[in-house]
């Protein structure tokens, strides 16, 4: 087990270097010039461009730029924006907000999605099953920005039961509705996944054995069925944490949340490669670690899986 974890941690290094370089290269390769629009609706004066190019190493080729960037990154410095603001601080401000948002979304997904999936999976065909199938299909079919705007307009402006946008502090209570919007799509997937997994395992051999041994129903469902059906759901939820953090651009935009998504969007818009790469570095780390934890959880859930 220890050796497996160590091996996985070592694997993180090339994955980390590869993804960050790829992102750096992609941002660098996006056509356009960071000085377009920096000086209002006129081209920047050449002396200004010369001074900035020099300061931000924009004249070097992409590999040299990347190496210089990684060099400072390894000392814990995320670099500066063109406005000479520390990117590390920006990420430190935005990340907790996005984490809160993602946690709320995952909780909503897991609680509602898994419950709905278990209920329908156990009962089989019937009114409840159809209701969940239709409503999840509906959620999957409408894009997040529609859900977001509808909820904002109905709850925020017409019924006035919540504030339409989130303040800069982004308290937990303010993030519940955006978290619901963000998690709604995955919630639908989770419930369908759980339902399919449970109804498949219900017919499995070990279920028949448990039933034949005369075990109580609660134990059959709670221990044997759920534990074995959890693997695909956990896999999905795990990868979703990273998605929800970095992929909340639309939701964050609608509700004016100052999170990681907005930071990436602004970074791409202004062609500030250092911001985009900095945030992606963080997201890559989150993805890699969450995936490692999930892989380890497989062994806990299913004793047939061993890491030796």
């Amino acid at each position: 087990m220890g050796r497996y974890v160590l091996r996985r941690l070592l694997q993180l290094i090339p994955v980390f270097v590869g993804t960050t370089f790829l992102i750096y290269f992609l941002v660098w390769a996006v056509p356009g010039d960071p000085f377009t629009g920096m000086c209002g609706e006129r081209p920047c004066p050449p002396q200004f461009v010369a001074a900035m190019t020099d300061k931000y190493n924009l004249d070097d080729n992409v590999v040299v730029q990347y190496l210089k960037y990684m060099g400072t990154l390894l000392t814990g410095d995320f670099g500066q924006t063109y406005a000479e603001q520390p990117i590390g601080d920006m990420i430190a401000n935005a990340a907790p907000v996005s984490v809160r948002l993602a946690v709320i979304a995952v909780i909503i997904e897991a609680v509602i999605g898994v419950t709905a999936g278990i209920l329908t999976g156990l009962r089989g065909r019937g009114f409840l099953d159809n209701l969940v199938l239709v409503s999840t299909l509906f959620l999957i079919a409408i894009p997040t920005f529609v859900t977001g705007f509808v909820i904002q307009i109905v709850l925020g402006f017409q019924l006035e039961i919540l504030t339409p946008t989130v303040s800069t502090e982004a308290k937990w209570s303010e993030l519940i509705i955006p978290g619901f919007v963000l998690g709604s799509l995955s919630m639908a997937y989770v419930s369908r996944l759980t339902r399919a997994s449970i109804s498949e395992n219900r017919r499995a051999d070990f279920m028949r054995t448990a039933l034949a041994k005369g075990q109580p129903k609660s134990r059959i469902v709670g221990v044997h069925l759920l534990r074995n059906s959890a693997i695909p759901v956990i896999t999905f939820l795990g990868t979703d944490i990273g998605n929800l953090m970095g992929g909340a651009i639309v939701t964050e935009g609608i509700f004016g949340i100052h999170g990681i998504g907005k930071l990436i969007f602004d970074g791409i818009n202004d062609k500030q490669g250092a911001i985009v790469t900095g945030v992606v570095v963080l997201l890559v780390l989150v993805f890699l670690l969450v995936n490692l934890i999930i892989d380890l959880m497989y062994a806990v859930l299913d004793p047939r899986i061993r890491y030796d």
Binding site: T163, P164, T165, F255
Partner: peptide
């Protein structure tokens, strides 16, 4: 989002 916030007095 800012326009929505002005509408909602935030």
């Amino acid at each position: 989002a800012a326009y929505a916030a002005v509408k909602g007095n935030q």
